[in-house]
Design a protein around this nucleic acid. Structure first.
Length: 263
DNA sequence: GTGCCATGTGAAA
DNA sequence: TTCACCTGGCACC
């Protein structure tokens, strides 16, 4: 489930289980073989998640940069003896743990010093700490200065990083904002609340390991089948106003919203 | 078995 | 604006 919350979890897994040890890196599929050699058997210093990208810093000034794209997936194991099943682009393991990466849009080795350049292109990430509200301020300014639709802005990784199609739809529903409202039409308060809701929802997502946006489920331990208000609920009754949830295309991506309560 | 769909991005036209 | 990338899951035959 590659929105930002799951990348945070991946970074947490790497930091917990592989960081600090020598990590072997293979490419069973073969497409990452040459690059894997550049970092294999080096010590993993740390993993960092920024937006939807994962950076694995090794002790030889090399970093593996990974973006799952729409297909990519991780699988984790409590053993380092695991049969390869299907197309495994990259396999990371030490004596105790193993992670398999399949289908990423990006998996490459870069110089660690280049990570900052990638970082610069990304907007503030709601899953990263923001004690001085600098990230919030960046987001609010950018949105309120923009003539783009808020539905597009939330998908723009230079405006806010880590939000994808599910959180986009759900954040706007929760805010009762039409996806077509221009960023410049949002009040300061609306923009601030949108950011703060993203921070809160993605925090829940990181803790739970999946996206939940229905208010009554946020603090519930129970795992429900239906966790969202509008995402993939086209044609069904809106849970708030009973209008039919709409499905339209916005810049080629599916846009779910409730025309009844998101004016 | 086949075919379609997906939580994404960036290059090409 | 369109297309290519690229893998797995699932509905349907």
């Amino acid at each position: 489930m590659p929105e930002g919350h799951s990348v945070q979890r991946t970074a947490n897994w790497f930091n917990k289980h592989l960081a600090g040890s020598k990590v072997r890196v293979d490419s069973p599929q073969g497409r990452f073989t040459d690059s894997a050699k550049l970092v294999s058997n080096r010590k993993l210093i740390r993993a960092r998640a920024i937006g939807k990208q994962l950076f694995l810093d090794f002790d030889n000034k090399k970093t593996v940069r990974i973006h799952l794209g729409i297909y990519g997936k991780w699988r984790y194991f409590d053993s380092n003896k695991v049969e390869v099943v299907g197309q495994v682009r990259a396999r990371f393991f030490n004596a105790a743990k193993l992670a398999d990466l399949r289908g990423p849009t990006i998996c490459e080795v870069i110089e660690t010093e280049l990570v900052d350049q990638h970082k610069k292109r990304l907007g503030p990430d709601p899953t990263n700490p923001d004690p001085k509200k600098l990230n919030q301020e960046r987001f609010v300014k950018r949105v309120r200065a923009s003539k783009s639709a808020i539905g597009l802005l939330l998908m723009n990784q230079s405006v806010i990083s880590g939000v994808g199609n599910v959180y986009r739809a759900e954040l706007l529903f929760r805010a009762k904002l039409s996806p077509y409202r221009l960023g410049s039409s949002l009040s300061q308060k609306q923009a601030v609340e949108l950011w703060q809701d993203a921070v809160m929802l993605m925090k829940v997502g990181v803790a739970k390991g999946f996206m939940v946006t229905r208010q009554e489920q946020l603090s519930s331990r129970k795992i429900h089948d239906e966790r969202n208000y509008v995402y993939k609920r086209e044609g069904l009754a809106c849970l708030r106003c009973r209008s039919n949830v709409a499905l339209e295309l916005m810049a080629t991506r599916k846009l779910y919203y409730c025309p009844g309560c998101q004016k």
